[in-house]
């Protein structure tokens, strides 16, 4: 069983607004609403690949119930710790005319020390059933980055592999607990610590830095993905994706890499499946692939290059 941990899930509302005008009158075209948050997205996609998934994390009222019901409808077992506030709603505005994607992200309901204790207890309980843990996404108010590291440590101490896909501050804490797979969330980031992400060399240096603390490091800069394990590194140029594809590309990428790790650990294969999964998600109507066939059909578009 793969246990996904989403500490700050969301309901994502996506609106298509052609010629978006800030301060002006805008008319909405297509719109859809779906459960979100990195860990939740990854849970759906791993489930689509046939994995047995238990999704946990914090969930508030209202939208939080929608998220849990949607997960269960997809055959995913849930074990969320409920919070008194409402789960956040995030908004994405797609402007096909300008080719832009505008995202508005809410902070989410606050978790108290009692809530955190309940979640920790649930996590420890479910670790006994888990083959792998995935911790992904932001933290709600009240939760410190060190808590993420604590979860990684609890899992690794029991021999359970952990994949983390989080932002810099949380990643730095998580790396201290030596996860199996680490992908920094680089959305809207051009500089990460001392690494300039505008250049290939900067991205490769970051991946090598992460790989000092994780068995596999993945760096996704949108148009290029770099995977490093030990001394070995590979790069993949990612073909251009549509607007919608940008929203969940990162989540699909790590879902693909995680899926590939269950079949082996050849770095080229992990990179190839990860990027194929991202491409498959990018070409789907809601930004998520729905079957293994979707990924298979994208594999021939992925060219993996070993780094010198």
């Amino acid at each position: 069983m793969i246990l996904t941990v989403t500490l700050n899930p969301s309901v994502d509302k996506v609106f298509e607004v052609s010629g978006l005008s800030l301060g002006g009158l805008n008319r909405i075209g297509n719109t859809f609403t779906q459960p979100g948050g990195k860990g939740v997205n990854i849970a759906f996609m791993l489930r689509a690949l046939g994995h047995e998934i238990t999704a946990m994390g914090f969930a508030g009222d209202g939208p939080g119930r929608f998220i849990q019901n949607s997960l269960r409808d997809a055959g995913i077992t849930t074990a969320f710790t409920l919070l008194p506030g409402k789960t956040r709603t995030n908004y994405a505005l797609l402007d096909p005319q300008a080719g832009s994607l505008t995202e508005l992200l809410s902070p989410g309901p606050e978790a108290t020390p009692t809530d955190i204790a309940v979640l920790r207890s649930t996590f420890e309980r479910l670790l006994g059933l888990a083959d792998m843990v995935v911790i992904a996404g932001s933290l709600p108010p009240g939760v410190e980055p060190t808590f993420c590291a604590e979860l990684v440590r609890l899992a690794t101490s029991r021999g359970v592999r952990v994949a983390v896909n989080v932002r810099e501050e949380i990643m730095n804490a998580a790396l201290s607990a030596r996860p199996f797979l680490a992908e920094p969330d680089l959305r809207d980031v051009t500089v990460y610590g001392d690494y300039d992400l505008s250049e290939h060399d900067g991205r490769l240096a970051l991946a090598r830095h992460v790989a000092k603390s994780a068995e596999i490091a993945v760096v996704n800069a949108g148009h290029e993905v770099i995977c490093v394990s030990g001394e070995k590194s590979v790069s993949v140029k990612v073909p251009a994706c549509g607007l919608l594809g940008r929203i969940r590309l990162d989540d699909a990428l790590i879902a693909g890499v995680i899926d590939a790790t269950t079949g082996g650990d050849v770095l080229e294969d992990l990179a190839r499946e990860g990027v194929a999964a991202a491409l498959a998600a990018a070409s789907s109507p809601n930004g998520q692939f729905t079957s293994r066939d979707d990924i298979q059909s994208c594999l021939d578009r992925v060219e993996v290059t070993p780094d010198a």
């Binding site: 077992t77 969320f80 309940v118």
Partner: peptide, 21 residues
């Protein structure tokens, strides 16, 4: 398909909190 559960060591206060939420 929900695995929310208590352990024998969960405090009664925490259990009541969960029931309420």
């Amino acid at each position: 398909r929900d695995l929310t559960a208590l352990t024998p060591e969960t405090s009664l206060q925490q259990a009541a909190h969960l029931f309420s939420l």
